[in-house]
Simulated assay, not measured.
Amino acid sequence: MKKIAFSGTLDPITNGHMWVIQEARALADEVVVMISENPFKKPQFSASERKAIVEKSVMAQGWTNVSVVLVKNDYTARTAKRLGIDYLIRGIRNTADFDYENLIQQANVEVLQGAKTIFVMPPRDLGSVSSSFVRALQGPVGWHWNVEKFLPEPAYKAWIVDWLGREWRSLWIQSDVDTSARANEDKWFQYLAGGSAYGSPQRHYHNLNHLVHGLTEIAAWAATTNANRNDISTIKKAFWFHDVVYDDVKQGISNEEASARLWLESGLDIDNAAEVADLIRATDHLQQNEIAHPLKDIMIGVDLAILGQPNEVYDQYARDVRNEYRSIEEETYRTNRKTVMMYFQHKAGSEELFHDAYFNDLYNQQALVNFEREIESLS
């Protein structure tokens, strides 16, 4: 078989879709992924954005015989036939899928004189993976860790950058009336989410995942405690900047102080700039007892919430931290890391790690379990 096509909205492309494309590659010399613009759907990404995401996902696999095209104002089966493609390939996960796809393939052949359809069944671990399933996971604390399991890396990164973009824009109130303010906001988002800061490939822990986790922790805290809007806004702005400067080389000041100064230089919130800067400084755990701020306990709770996550998440966090400090020799790292963990363990043992009751109740007990496991692994 020379050509076979795989079609769909692909919003986003999932590992299930990638499996079907791989099956198609085993059947044909060339695979064409056809992205449809369905007027009855409101996708998160535009058709051109979806095309770029699929191309990056395919490229990351090294699949040189896969191309991506957009289908506009036509049926995919008829477009495929016009492109010299005789067969479409579709994944069937259950009987409902089969009934639906069977009707579609009959219409393709009998009504449209389009390409015929080949059905394949995915393995059990991909049997429930769909774009709608992935979209339904978005929202609660930890949603990004779950979504990451079901998407190819380029699709996952596009997904969380889009989510972060919406979170970022919700912080600013002058964008609709002040074009210079909007331009400044966009500039700083590109910096923070791009390769110079949290989006840098050198950021293994203090990265985009860290931002998503912190912002969802803030949202959960706010919903549970009925926090006021100004406090929520202040904490979110501080969290966006609190780890933006993260460098092994100290320029005579802490990373937190450098991050606070960068925030002040941004000009993003002139009226509340000093309060946000002080809250950023409060995340300096080595100096926290010397920094006063009414929201400090909440900010520290958000920053340390990773320590009380389930074993799998915490273990990945510990690996990411090691990678972030990969320039440090192993024995030195293990000694220093163990010292820090024992300090945290002591704090958690006396319930002084999380000073806010909301975070203490949620995470202190699991944090103790995690500290004990990591300390043992470092010994």
Rank of each mutant, 00 (worst) to 15 (best):
D11I: 03
P12M: 03
W19I: 05
I21C: 05
R25P: 00
I35N: 01
S36Y: 03
N38V: 05
F40Y: 07
Q44N: 01
F45T: 05
S57N: 07
V58D: 02
M59I: 06
M59L: 11
W63M: 08
S67V: 12
V68D: 07
V68N: 08
N73K: 10
N73L: 01
T76Q: 04
R78F: 05
K81W: 06
L83I: 02
I89F: 08
I89K: 09
R90Q: 12
R90V: 09
N94W: 04
T95C: 03
T95H: 09
F98C: 00
Y100W: 07
L103Q: 12
A107F: 00
E110Y: 01
E110V: 11
G114A: 02
A115I: 09
V120W: 00
P122T: 05
P122I: 06
P123D: 05
R124F: 09
L126W: 01
V129I: 15
S132F: 02
V134R: 03
V134Q: 05
V134W: 08
Q138V: 14
V141P: 04
V141W: 01
G142S: 08
W143K: 04
E148A: 15
E148Y: 12
L151N: 06
P152K: 07
E153W: 09
A155N: 04
Y156I: 06
W159G: 00
D162E: 14
W163C: 03
R166D: 12
W168N: 07
W168M: 10
W168E: 03
R169D: 10
S170I: 03
W172T: 04
S175N: 10
D176I: 01
V177I: 14
D178C: 10
G194T: 08
A197Y: 06
P201D: 13
R203E: 13
Y205A: 11
Y205Q: 14
H206I: 11
V212H: 06
I218N: 00
A223K: 08
I232N: 01
K237T: 05
A238Y: 05
Y246A: 06
D248K: 06
K250S: 13
G252F: 09
G252S: 10
G252L: 13
I253S: 03
S254N: 11
N255F: 12
N255Y: 12
A260E: 02
A260S: 11
R261T: 02
L262S: 08
E265R: 14
G267H: 09
N272H: 12
A274T: 07
L279T: 11
L279R: 08
I280L: 08
I280P: 08
A282Q: 01
T283I: 11
T283C: 10
H285V: 09
Q287C: 05
E290D: 14
L295V: 02
G301M: 08
D303A: 12
A305C: 05
A305Q: 02
I306T: 15
Q316D: 10
Q316P: 00
N323K: 15
R326G: 00
S327I: 12
S327L: 12
I328T: 14
E329M: 06
E330Y: 09
T339C: 07
Y343C: 06
F344E: 05
H346E: 14
K347V: 01
K347A: 13
A348F: 13
S350C: 02
E351K: 14
L353F: 15
F354H: 03
N360M: 12
Q365L: 09
L368I: 14
S379G: 10
S379F: 10
S379M: 13
